[in-house]
Design a protein around this nucleic acid. Structure first.
Lengths: 349, 349
DNA sequence: GGACGGTTCTGTATCGATTTAGTTAGTCTT
DNA sequence: AAGACTAACTAAATCGATACAGAACCGTCC
């Protein structure tokens, strides 16, 4: 069983006394040769342990690799543990897999310089949540399709949800019962990292992420409509959508004296909202009597618990499917906006 | 701005009037040419928009692609939404990224036939949780490193946790307070899919997954030691570690008449245990007075809630890191067994 | 019987890089 | 000043396939 080296198509052809073209055709275009010869080739291939045409050589020759690169804004370590990113990826994977493609995972964060190099193997790109300011795109092979998810790039396909109206809708719902002390917890709003209280000028000045910006706009629109001055609403910011990072910031909020502690928290993600829910419960606060909480995203964890989270459901899996279909050229590549659904749970009825 | 086609190294060399070797060296081996020439080449490359050596061609020539394929037993759609698999992937990604490699995601489930073909581009393989019976391995290029996670294959590196002793430990802890009606909820124990009650003979006969089998052995060992006949303990099985699939099975268990309803649930995963916890709370059962519940895995969701889940913590991220280090040849490839930690939470104090 | 058409199969250029062996030029020794 | 080194650069083979243009063969039809 000592196969010192993988056998090549050429060697297989020589062994059989046929041309390499025929062997190649036996694997790729059965109609180009007689069934008899094809069978002979395939059985000899099996006998010699030939695994079929080498993917590296094939992709060089044909120019296609059947690989789609997904470039994520955050680190892979973070993204893979984030429910929303995971849903997106699973939608992408579903479609790619169904069409014989595979998924190459890259992070725009950890190795920005290397991305174009590693990526050049891919047939197309799906870029998730990157700041448009990053000039990464300029370095990606420009002939291949690129789909932006959750933001826009000129001259490229994109898919995202209607963040602004969705945020407006949930805030409107929440404000229908007038809060005494509303507050907003943002996610990655500011240009430079910051975990904790932020002023509203600070927020307005430095908001760069399109999604976050849109959600905040939606909230503020609803505030104005409810007769509340947006700049009077205290805001916090959180840098990373994880339990670890959310916990201290939210603890700070909930540990304020009773007459300062918010009675309504509009959170920019379900992770933030769920952490708030847990910490509030631990402090013996009653939900929703003492504190109402809203999320954003509609992840499973928020719906399979009591109290159920009031949130906006965005179908990230479907977003992934569409992005994948676009990158494979199965869907038109015009910018696509998905709608969301307001889920009224028990955390803010 | 109409670059009709990506420029090649050869064209760049011609443009500069130097050999292709020098251009290649400018990118890969700075020590092989004068700084002056190198700078000239790099700046001309920038000017012409040359993105560096093409990954496809390079990988053909060098035989290395800087890509590691991760082959998951379950569908990608499922795996990406599973906390344990995600943690594993994030550990893998962390190490690969740090060493300039990227991660290609494949599912052993959806396209088993295509796996070897797509995979042949990779420098190495990490295979997660596949049944050893699958003959997939035989078809993977045998010269390249392969690391098995959570199971063993002959002649290959592997890394897993001590499932049997860990299961024994948590069951022993739970049984220290004698339960009136203990029960076990298995995960993917049986050969043919089955969601619901299973008999213990059924379980013993068809258990094929090594992890599940080991965990059940650990539980049963503890039962025997506590003077409980394992075959008298009712068992259920769940096919997929998701809220959707767990919910009806667990509802069936919790909706048994009071005198049949278990007062201790040993669950094979945190997902199962957490679903049980939620459903029990919804039914007004007191945890742990009316019902004690244990999990397995130690996912974050179980620790950031009240009551905290009693479970076994396995560090899947670390498992991923080690697998990645093995596949890159940074760690010795001897079979590696990681230890676990018993976490005594509030769901079974 | 020769022109024609259709299969079946082959020879070879090509994809875009890397790398070995080798050339040229310049520097250092003694 | 000849020989020995070294640094800087190049020519060309090579990685393993694919796909085009064309050759060989066979049967058919007028």
């Amino acid at each position: 069983m000592s196969s010192p080296r993988r056998i090549t198509l050429k060697e297989l052809a020589a062994e059989l006394g046929v041309s390499t073209a025929s062997v190649s055709n036996a694997f790729n275009r059965p109609d180009q040769l007689s069934p008899r010869l094809r069978e002979r080739i395939l059985s000899e291939a099996r006998r010699l342990g030939y695994q079929g045409p080498d993917a590296k050589a094939r992709s060089l020759r044909t120019g296609r690799s059947q690989i789609v690169a997904v470039i994520l804004a955050e680190s892979l370590t973070y993204s893979l543990n984030d429910a929303v990113a995971s849903e997106l990826l699973s939608g992408i994977a579903e479609v790619l897999d169904a069409h014989g493609h595979t998924l190459l995972l890259l992070s725009g964060r950890q190795t920005p310089a290397k991305v174009p190099g590693s990526a050049s193997i891919a047939d197309g790109f799906i870029v998730y949540g990157l700041m448009p300011s990053l000039r990464l795109f300029a370095d990606l092979p420009s002939q291949r399709p690129l789909v932006a998810v959750d933001f826009d790039i000129e001259d490229h396909a994109s898919v995202h949800v209607d963040n602004e109206p969705a945020a407006y809708a949930i805030a409107r719902h929440a404000l229908a019962t007038p809060p005494a002390r509303p507050a907003v917890i943002n996610l990655r709003l500011t240009e430079q990292p910051c975990n904790g209280r932020i002023t509203s000028e600070h927020a307005l000045l430095s908001a760069s992420r399109t999604i976050t910006r849109a959600r905040l706009d939606g909230f503020q629109h609803a505030f104005v409509e409810a007769g509340i001055a947006p700049e009077a609403v205290p805001m916090w910011n959180i840098e990373e959508n994880t339990h670890e990072v959310c916990t201290p910031v939210i603890a700070e909020i909930l540990d304020l004296p009773d007459d300062e502690r918010p009675d309504l928290l509009l959170c920019m993600s379900d992770r933030i909202a769920l952490t708030a829910l847990t910490l509030a419960e631990q402090r013996g606060l009653c939900i929703p009597e003492d504190l109402r909480i809203t999320g954003f995203d509609g992840i499973a964890e928020g719906q399979y618990r009591a109290p159920r989270l009031t949130t906006v459901r965005q179908d990230s899996t479907e977003k992934g499917r569409i992005a994948a279909r676009m990158v494979l050229g199965l869907d038109p590549t015009e910018p696509r906006q998905l709608s969301t659904a307001l889920i009224i749970g028990d955390s803010c009825p």
